[in-house]
Design a protein around this nucleic acid. Structure first.
Lengths: 212, 212
DNA sequence: GTCTATAGACTGATAGAC
DNA sequence: GTCTATCAGTCTATAGAC
């Protein structure tokens, strides 16, 4: 049916353009030109520009969160209810990093869009984002089960830092590439995941920390 | 002189509004209303909106970079040309974090503006940003002197991750606050710097890393 | 230097023919 | 469902009086 084709074309084009250039710079006219559909189609199918963004954000965040939780579940089952801390971090940052830096272009657009959404925070997204905290609390809970002797505050900071490293790597891989003059291999996604997981684990289980 | 007052009022208001709401959402009308000056004054003093943003970015990045290099220089002199690696990381992330999370409101606006600028990358800033890589290379060089036996690639990743943790903490302190239900103290700036420096040092000097 | 008034170019959204 | 045509609102930038 032509209706589905138009709707899908709009979603894909919007996701790609938003991922590349951000919400503010991309107009509905840009989107319909890229999707090769009529200007009025966006409002017909989605109601408004904001609702289009919200629809993209909701559907993509469901997919990412499901992947994360699947990996977490697998890790917890493998450990009899207590996952290894490295497996928890891998479940947290792996899906997003694989989506963003991997070879699959469509998934790459999706993940970059999500990073963009987490930064620019258009009104419709701001409301939805509060749910993400509940999602992350499940990882905090898994970390607590994995390392029951650790201070909760350290676990929260560890989770925060792991996400920070993953997101910054996706967002500003260009700067790292220039700084290292190409020597940091940004195509080696698994290597990057291992680095981030390794640092995150060390941050929690490593030796003495600096004192105030 | 009234001219200086108007000019300064525009700069301060623009910085605060951009820091709070981003470049796209803040119009020149918002700025002149906050600065209590006339709409035409912005174009008279700065030429255009983009030039206003560029002027803010250039002047602020000079200040931050000078602070960073001063701290780095002090650390290198204290070590007879080879700074301690923790002191290098502290020089890298300290000035920005103190500016953003500390009590001084004007500095806070400045630092938040810089974070915003590093993300949203309006055209005039994109050109200037390339210079930042040269600035960071001086830190990479200091790291190499500090840890001459380490692989350069690991040092680049270490620098990248340190900046990632600092920026994400500034940008999305709200999420960490919600996630931890207020238990992560975001007012303890020195404690946060110590955490980030500690993790960054461990990432380079800690025990075995995860393998691919 | 500072103001008013407005030009000129966008934007998102919609009415109505097909 | 898809299109054209257009509205009403916003923006930056500027001309010209003071």
């Amino acid at each position: 049916m032509a209706a589905d084709h138009t709707r899908t074309a709009i979603l894909l084009a919007a996701e790609r353009l938003y991922a590349e250039r951000g919400f503010a710079d991309v107009t509905m006219r840009d989107i319909v030109a890229a999707a090769d559909v009529n200007l009025a189609a966006v409002n017909y199918h989605f109601g408004s520009k904001d609702e289009l963004i919200a629809e993209l954000f909701v559907s993509r965040s469901l997919v990412t969160n499901r992947e994360r939780l699947n990996e977490l579940k697998t890790a917890e089952e493998a450990g009899g209810g207590r996952a290894r801390i490295d497996a928890i971090f891998a479940a947290l940052v792996g899906p997003t990093l694989r989506g963003c830096l991997g070879p699959d272009k469509q998934r790459s657009d999706a993940a970059r869009f999500m990073i963009r959404a987490s930064i620019e925070s258009v009104p419709p997204i701001r409301k939805i984002k509060n749910r993400e905290v509940d999602h992350l609390k499940r990882f905090a809970a898994a970390m607590r089960r994995s390392l029951p002797d650790h201070d909760d505050v350290d676990l929260f900071w560890g989770l925060h830092f792991a996400l920070a490293m993953a997101h910054q790597t996706i967002r500003d891989s260009e700067r790292l590439n220039k700084l290292s003059e190409g020597r940091c291999d940004l195509n080696d996604v698994q290597g990057i995941i291992n680095r981030i997981v390794g640092v995150s684990v060390l941050a929690l289980t490593g030796r003495a920390k600096a004192r105030a």
